[in-house]
Design a protein around this nucleic acid. Sequence first.
RNA 1: UGGGGUAUAGCCAAGUUGGUAAGGCACCAGAUUUUGAUUCUGGCAUCCGUAGGUUCGAGUCCUGCUACCCCAGCCA
Length: 561
Amino acid sequence: MSEPTGTNFINNIIDEDIRNNIYQNNKVLTRFPPEPNGYLHIGHAKSILLNYNTSLRYNGKFNLRFDDTNPVKEDEEYVQSIKEDIKWLGADWEDRLFFASNYFDKMFLYALELIKKDLAYVDDLSPDEIRQYRGTLFSPGKNSPYRNRSIEENLELFTRMKDGKFIDGSKVLRAKIDMSSPNINMRDPIIYRILHTHHHNTGDTWCIYPMYDYAHPIEDGIEGITHSICTLEFEDHRPFYNWLLENLDDFKIQRPKQIEFAKLQLSRTIIGKRFIKTLVDKGIVDGWDDPRLMTISGMRRRGITPEAIQNFCDEIGVARSNSIVDIAMFEHFVRDDLKLKTPRLMAILDPIKIVITNYPEDKIEWLDMHNNQDNESLGIRKIPFGREIYIEKEDFMEVPIKKYFRLFPGNEVRLMGAYFIKCNEVIKNANGEIIQLNCTYDPETKSGSGFTGRKVKGTLHWVCAQNCIESEIRLYDYLLNDNNDIDDDEDNPDPLNNINPDSLKVIKGYLEPELANANSGDKFQFVRNGYFVVDSKDSTKNNLVFNLTLNLKSSWKPSNS
RNA sequence: UGGGGUAUAGCCAAGUUGGUAAGGCACCAGAUUUUGAUUCUGGCAUCCGUAGGUUCGAGUCCUGCUACCCCAGCCA
């Protein structure tokens, strides 16, 4: 993991805290608190890395804690995938893996403490009545008729709630604060509800479960978290966060500080859990790890590296203003990381055959080629060259446009790592389609021979027709058509109205034989075509599947003018 | 008719106590190049949502205004 660099408003707050000696030993402790109800995505990566890097920066620690307080939505499957994704990203929680459910006993005791302090009460109002009593954004709420029960009665009722004496929804425990607060979160928030549901961790031990607002500050407090970093929408919850901790004796000495930041938004991408789930459920994508998805597992399968994600997150910064990062920025860091790491091989994705008429019919030469011109440590390999080769269809024009310096009749180009060839004849079928190009090569121009006789404008990649292997190639594009008209309503996701129908194109590729040895997850640059990775799900030795990670950039703008 | 936030280039984003606008992406121009890639060089906010005010001096302080985001789950 690269050293955290740069600064942000959170570092400023912590620096200030340290100057004021607010925290014991100035030891910083952060945490990432996912709810195990879905897969992690790039937005979570920002949060994970922010928390982890912050702990590193201050020589502190980073906890992983599952916020599993709602068993109706949570599942063990998700805790496994989340752990795997965080590990892959490079954030290390060492031995500090926790669950909110680890603290259910303590949370119950703290609830008793609140009741005894007359700061919590059992409410018999129905969910509907509670909503009505809560008031609106513009008008105050009113006290529940059960608000003034005696401490003894509350203690007894709450204990009976725990003991399973009541049905779901019949009673809740609420904090007693202020029903007329302009902040709705302070209008006697519900802190416990009855849920006769099996929990992935505690089984059937409990039938009452704490609400997030109640559980989270206690979890942070118990673990000694110093800076509880969360997203902007929790800003309004901070007063209750502080209220709770201030009213619990155990947290008098040192209390965590909640700090909110703006979650990541990316152009041409929707990362809402609901949205992704809809795509998965409707079969629009191939599971949570579909390479078009910005889930951690999807990016991994797409061939994107943790380092690229780390560098990207470092560069976008952390702030409190909502913003949408240009996807081009993300792509920059993906290419930037793959550039020197991946071997550069040749593959033809849309072939047209060339016959080199002056090359011996049965001769095959094995040429030396560097794997990455900019990184010699990647070594060299042999590639076969013969009389028949493939080049890309788009690298030939019978009638060249202006400034076209690829192959056209009478023009000479370089075959990368091999020879200069000149096109002499265009062969067409009965329909007038070009099916073959006859060329001649110049033996003197062999690559590496030091030939300087003449220069050539174009260099093409190619593959030996007699000695190439075929594979499946999956070309990915953005899942969304554009940035407009995207319905990102979490409660009513309608991703279908803007889906790019061509986000996946499956074609056949012709690869140099070296690629036959590629293993699952191996990454390459296919010269002039882009970065590709061997698919981890569907690729086999006999049926290789390559996923496009990203195209190469290109400043080539074909024009006739 | 409430409360909480945010506004610095096309996009992110620095900007500690007011002293005269970092960096990255994108883009443009030029050089190098056996990937029209990479690399390299140069360019890219007389201006910090807006209108006033304080000051020798304001993105930074004060006042008004505007725009946008979040909040009425027994979700997190």
